[in-house]
Each structure stands twice: as structure tokens, then as C-alpha cells.
Simulated scan of single mutants.
Amino acid sequence: MVRKRVVVIGDVQGVFFRNTCRSTARAHGVAGWVRNLPDGTVEAVFEGAAEGVDELVAWAHDGPPTAIVDEVSVRQEEPEGIVGFEIRPTPLGF
């Protein structure tokens, strides 16, 4: 099991990025979450089998058809045993 946190920069809010991310993650059996950040980026955590997580990281470099992804940062983290995949609210005081 692996866990990766990604931050996606570009025109990635208001283009169904989070919903498409959630359905793509579920299709690949990947757990985690995704949320918009106040600075216009999208942050996501992908956790599960390495192959599925890598598929989601690769997907994040393109996103849904209406997204324009300029940059993706990826950070490896320790798995936490997350179950399911959710869309989280934008954090306050970011």
C-alpha cells in the first residue's frame, strides 16, 4: 500500500475536477480525498495499491477534458488506511 499527496495547478476549479477525480479513483480501487484550495489549486490524497495510485497520479496531470493542468506536485506519505474516496470542503484560513 502506498499514499501520495498531489497538488494540481492550473485552470482546475469549476471544471468537474473533483467529481471526475472521485469517480476515477473509485474505478481504480483507490481510497483518499480531493478538495479545492482557496488559491485556485486542487489537492488530493491517493492511497492504495501502487498501480492504482500511480494511475491516479498520471490522471491528475491531465484531469478532466475541460481542465488545463499546468503543474502537478507529488509527495509520498505514509499510508493511513483510508477507506473510500470523498470530496472534502475547501479549508478555511488556508
Results as ranks from 00 to 15, higher is better:
Pro79Glu: 05
Gly93Trp: 01
Gly52Ile: 05
Val30Met: 06
Ser73Asn: 08
Arg22His: 03
Ile82Thr: 11
Ala49Ser: 07
Asn36Phe: 03
Leu56Pro: 05
Pro65Ala: 14
Asp39Met: 02
Glu43Gly: 01
Gly40Arg: 06
Asp54Cys: 02
Glu51Gly: 00
Ser23Cys: 08
Asn19Asp: 12
Gln76Phe: 04
Leu92His: 08
Asp54Gly: 03
Pro38Arg: 09
His61Phe: 11
Glu55Pro: 00
Val7Arg: 15
Arg75Met: 13
Thr90Glu: 13
Val57Trp: 06
Gly40Pro: 06
Glu80Tyr: 00
Glu86Gly: 05
Ile82Asp: 01
Glu77Trp: 00
Gly10His: 12
Val12Gly: 05
Phe85Ala: 10
Gly93Met: 03
Arg18Phe: 11
Glu51Trp: 00
Gly29Gln: 08
His61Tyr: 12
Glu43Arg: 02
Thr41His: 03
Thr20Asp: 13
Ile82Glu: 10
Val53Ser: 05
Glu77Leu: 13
Phe85Pro: 09
Gly10Met: 12
Arg22Pro: 02
Glu80Cys: 03
Asn19Gln: 14
Val30Gln: 07
Phe46Ala: 09
Thr90Gln: 12
Glu47Cys: 06
Ala60Phe: 07
Val72Ser: 12
Gly14Lys: 07
Val53Lys: 06
Gly10Ala: 12
Arg26Gln: 15
Arg3Tyr: 04
Leu92Glu: 13
Glu86Met: 02
Ala44Glu: 10
Trp33Val: 07
Arg35Glu: 02
Asp70Asn: 14
Ala58Thr: 15
Gly63Glu: 11
Pro89Asp: 14
Val30Ile: 08
Pro64Asp: 11
Asp70Gly: 15
Arg35Phe: 04
Val8Lys: 11
Arg3Pro: 01
Phe46Ile: 05
Gly52Phe: 11
Ile9Lys: 13
Trp59Lys: 08
Val34Glu: 10
Val7Phe: 00
Leu56Val: 02
Gly84Tyr: 07
Val83Thr: 13
Val57His: 09
Gly14Cys: 09
Gly84Lys: 08
Phe17Thr: 06
Ala49Ile: 01
Ile9Ala: 09
Trp33Phe: 08
Thr20Ala: 13
Leu37Met: 13
Val69Cys: 10
Arg88Ala: 12
Val42Phe: 03
Glu78His: 04
Val74Glu: 14
Ile68His: 15
Ala31Trp: 01
Ala50Pro: 05
Phe17Val: 06
Phe85Gly: 10
Ala25Gly: 03
Phe85Asp: 06
Phe46His: 11
Gly52Asn: 09
Leu92Asp: 11
Gly48Trp: 01
Val2Arg: 14
Pro91Trp: 01
Gly48Met: 01
Ile87Leu: 11
Pro38Asp: 03
Phe46Val: 07
Pro91Lys: 05
Ser73Leu: 13
Gly48Arg: 00
Asn36Lys: 08
Phe94Arg: 06
Ala67Leu: 09
Phe85Asn: 09
Pro64Ser: 11
Val34His: 10
Gly93Cys: 03
His28Phe: 04
Thr20Ile: 01
Ser23Leu: 14
